[in-house]
Write a protein that binds this DNA or RNA. Structure first.
Lengths: 203, 203, 203, 203
DNA sequence: GAATAAGCGAGACGGTACGTCCGGTCTTCAT
DNA sequence: ATGAAGACCGGACGTACCGTCTCGCTTATTC
């Protein structure tokens, strides 16, 4: 039987302090040099208080990122995917915003850290997908579904594939730093995804 | 002045043993539990011999992967990008091969490890790009250039963008494990990249 | 400000295990081949637990010797310097016992190690003197003072010099191994110290 | 079969450089932090050149001290034990000189180092005695023998014991630093050794 | 006089131990 | 009776040296 601490008695003050410290430290020293001890010290918390509630530093960071995402939403930065009827414009709008976010130093370090950690640790990756990634993908998919219903996309369009054609190249550039990540890139990407690159349409 | 060891007197036997041990161990225990000490022990080598020639375990793994890639080439698995004249077929062929490689357990662990480490460590990432990624991308770009010259692509096609539209989604699925990575996915991806997803062509 | 660990929370079990292991190992492998790692391993203790409480292996050995001396006393081997009224006999008794102790393999290795280390490291030497040597010398001095008060020694006798005339040659033979260390030597030494060696008394 | 290098081909320049470097370094960093590598570097010599001719750093230091003692002699500091007919005066003269030498920082570090190392390592100790200590003791013994023949000492005087009664306390103070080492101490020691400390002569 | 072999400076190598840092567990004390 | 504080065992870190082992390069005989 695993000890399951009583969540009701949990100190919210400590919880917040830990998440804040984790975010701050991952930005300062990077994921690899991020240590539980440093988080505990910065948060003014005993190590055990971290180990009691999280299994690893990655898990702490995941929760911290969720909290960060929650805050961003609460601040009303965007309450859903835009739908002006113009699919290309809407996608460009969102992809530009994503570019901005990925380049915002506040988000960059934890996002890179989590993505990298998830790539290596399947279990963490699964939770990362479930909690952070999929909700985002679902928004794209919903918008595309509307477009498909509106006849802007072929009826047999693979929505999932389309979403990944948009986010894949973006993530690729961001993660691997092969080229600078710009609004122009986001625009061109949307255009080529919707229109294709071939001169003669492939069936 | 930094101590620069004399590369002429380097033991090639040790170098190989270290790279082999690193590849074997990263497959067995994963990147996070991979230790320099274990590599040294497995290779029958003093730790200092590793530290003398590489700055980090990531760097060892990069060299190991380069050696692995070198071997693969020498074994004549493919001496260049196919060019049958049928662009879609050629791309599908290569992307299917890439899918197979990414799923081959021999390559998977070090590839994930390097990609993740490079995402977090900019300097390592730069070398990873330069030595492993860019040469691969260049092959795609060359094939696409041929196609563009043959009139199969618009004259103003952004070749780089196109390459990333092919490899981005593939890498995305592989790294984040959002969906299974299959030949069918590779085929559909090539079709949609070339043809676009929109019903009506965007200008 | 140096980190001062909380002595109140110190594990006495670990402390004892470390001292025991140090004594055992110094006897087995000698001082030069004695390592902190081996002590930690033998004691079933983390290395940090040694480094937390002692600055060097010599300091560990000093504490171990103090503990050993404490045990010897507790076992009632001698609760003070004998005083039968016969100074020469008393000194011979104690010096013979000292000879026996210096030749007892249980004490020899740590005693040699500490003496040698103290000779080289002034700070350690000072603590060695203060904690182990001086208390012993004080006993001799007290007995000699009694003798002086009883008129067996000249009123202006330098007690300290006398003590060192007794222990100096003994220690010299023991440490430098110039000659075998025997009871006969101890007896002759006492006689010559008390009586002098010259045929005609020097004023 | 052990490799016996050809002594005829030995480089005297290297030999001297090594001994000088050893003496200099033992004074600077102490015996424990003295390393073969540092000696080699300081002497501008390959490590193998040291290992070829000496089995350990202690052996190097022993040779270095012998060379130092040889130089001192050559410089004519004393070509034998004085014999003015006044035994006490002669002994005081030599013991005072010994005190001065033991306090001379040029000799102190290597002398302490060798004595301490010899105390711990019996084989080294034996060679230390044979090559450095015994020749010195023999000089004392010779002078005392002359005195005994002259009737200044009892015919049955144990010369060896007497020598050790002189050098033992001196060495004791020097090595253990129990008290300052002064000319006055040397004088008092000679007086008490010759005359004894007891008020009434012990037979 | 050339050939050959030794000592030599240099330093890479397989190792061992160093002293430090941190992971994860367990205990103590204060609130 | 929770949580901060931190001691504990363990294990990897990156460094310093150990003693051995090639390397070329002087020297210095020996044929």
């Amino acid at each position: 039987m695993t000890k399951t601490p009583d969540a009701a008695r949990r100190s919210d003050r400590s919880r917040r302090a830990i998440l804040d410290a984790a975010l701050a430290l991952v930005g300062e020293v990077g994921y690899n040099k991020l240590t539980i001890e440093a988080i505990a010290a910065r948060a003014g918390v005993g190590k055990q208080t971290i180990y009691r509630w999280w299994p690893s530093k990655a898990a702490v960071l995941l929760d911290a990122s969720l909290a960060l995402a929650g805050e961003a939403e609460t601040e009303g930065q965007w309450t859903g995917f835009p739908d002006t009827g113009d699919l290309a414009a809407d996608l460009k709008h969102v992809l530009r915003a994503t570019v901005d976010e990925l380049c915002d130093e506040k988000y960059e370090a934890p996002a890179r850290a989590l993505t990298a950690a998830g790539a290596t640790d399947p279990e963490l990756g699964a939770r990362f997908n479930e909690r952070l990634l999929e909700p985002q993908l679902a928004l794209y998919e919903a918008r595309l579904r509307t477009a498909r219903q509106a006849g802007q996309l072929a009826p047999d369009t693979d929505l999932r594939l389309t979403v990944e054609m948009l986010l894949g190249p973006l993530t690729y550039r961001w993660l691997l730093r092969t080229q600078p990540l710009t609004h122009a890139f986001a625009d061109a990407l949307v255009d080529r995804v919707l229109g294709g690159v071939a001169k003669v349409t492939v069936p």
